[in-house]
């Protein structure tokens, strides 16, 4: 009886054995990926390309070092409004750090965490590596980590923050749209700016294209929307760029705050959906006793500004990755709401 099924059972066993081994397990240490020539100073190898984005998310004044690593001889597809379509095997790398003294960056940085988004057959997988105290390497951690950080800011002030590296699920809160995890930053309208490479300064999109990392770029390149802190643009454009970068990853259709019906993506034009004279739905005490998300002309009566000002986790927006006020953005949003009619 047993003999009769021997082959079958053996075969099954093999399948199970193979299938349980073939799960690609992420590396335990950041250094195992070999992205960097000098991991401590965040100097990438030639195949790992550094970049920055025009309108980044505010994360408690942390500095972010961004890189992308694509498999050899592959390229991403350009898109203006959406994230580039990266080939399978791409890793997007982002290290969060605080300068020791912002007035003199040569004094170095305290590295906190390095987040990876790895694109495999099933989509993007988020991972977070936490730096050790010796600053020699970072280690995979699923549950996030709390750092108490202090640094000296631009104006010589000593600043302090309880910095919270998110857990893997929290990554999805911001990165998931229509049940798919997506990068947020590298889209055409965020990438059309210059970067200082070791070989000299160049436009990022041209640079990627010249190195055959990016296909189908338009000529000439389409203009960027406003850069939020660049005074040469108008207040409305700057505010909309800021809100797009800091809110719209959740506040858009299909994203985690979709149930609010309050969307701030840069291409939204319906004034109710943008929050103008819109009453809150499930804000709870996040409403601050105010009637409208945006009360045009009255920033002090607008929930949007109230929640930007707050640092109470039950009130503040964004919900994650912020513990401090963004002091430079608050006047912009205040002025924008004052100008609205």
């Amino acid at each position: 009886m047993v003999k009769k099924y021997t082959k079958f059972i053996f075969f099954l066993f093999l399948i199970i054995l193979i299938s349980s081994v073939s799960y690609a397990k992420p590396h335990k240490q950041l250094s195992d990926y070999n992205f960097f020539k000098d991991i401590k100073n965040q100097i990438p190898r030639d195949e790992t390309v550094p970049y920055k984005i025009a309108n980044p998310l505010f994360s408690d004044y942390s500095y972010k070092f961004r890189f992308v690593h694509m498999p050899l001889n592959t390229a991403a597809e350009y898109s203006y409004n959406n994230v580039f379509n990266f080939p399978i095997g791409t890793t997007i790398i982002k290290t969060f750090a605080y300068p020791i003294d912002e007035r003199d960056l040569d004094k170095g940085f305290q590295l906190l965490e390095t987040r990876l988004l790895i694109k495999n057959k099933n989509g993007w997988e988020p991972l977070s590596y936490i730096w050790n105290n010796e600053q020699t390497n970072a280690f995979l951690k699923y549950t996030g980590h709390t750092f108490n950080v202090s640094w000296i800011s631009n104006n010589g002030q000593e600043k302090y923050v309880r910095y919270r590296a998110p857990n893997v699920n929290q990554c999805k809160t911001c990165h998931e749209i229509n049940n798919k995890i997506q990068p947020i930053g590298p889209k055409g309208r965020n990438m059309n700016i210059n970067f200082v490479y070791p070989s000299g300064e160049a436009n990022q999109i041209d640079f990627w294209h010249d190195r055959k990392l990016l296909n189908n770029i338009p000529t000439p390149l389409k203009r960027n929307p406003a850069i939020w802190d660049d005074a040469k643009y108008g207040i409305n454009e700057r505010a909309r760029s800021y809100l797009d970068a800091n809110c719209a990853h959740c506040h858009q259709k299909g994203a985690s705050a979709s149930n609010s019906g309050f969307y701030l993506n840069i291409d939204e034009n319906n004034s109710s959906i943008l929050g103008i004279y819109k009453t809150p739905v499930a804000a709870g005490r996040g409403s601050g006793g105010l009637k409208y998300i945006i009360d045009p002309g009255n920033p002090a009566d607008s929930i949007l500004l109230y929640r930007m000002l707050s640092t109470d986790p039950g009130v503040m927006m964004p919900e994650l990755s912020r513990n401090l006020q963004h002091e430079e953005a608050i006047p912009l949003i205040r002025e924008w709401i004052s100008q609205l009619k």
């Binding site: 047993v2 021997t6 082959k7 059972i9 053996f10 099954l12 066993f13 199970i16 054995l17 349980s20």
Partner: peptide, 18 residues
Amino acid sequence: MKINKKIIYFMVIIFISN
């Protein structure tokens, strides 16, 4: 192919535990 009974039991246990 000759396989010891014990090995088969072992496989069955692995199978179930999976």
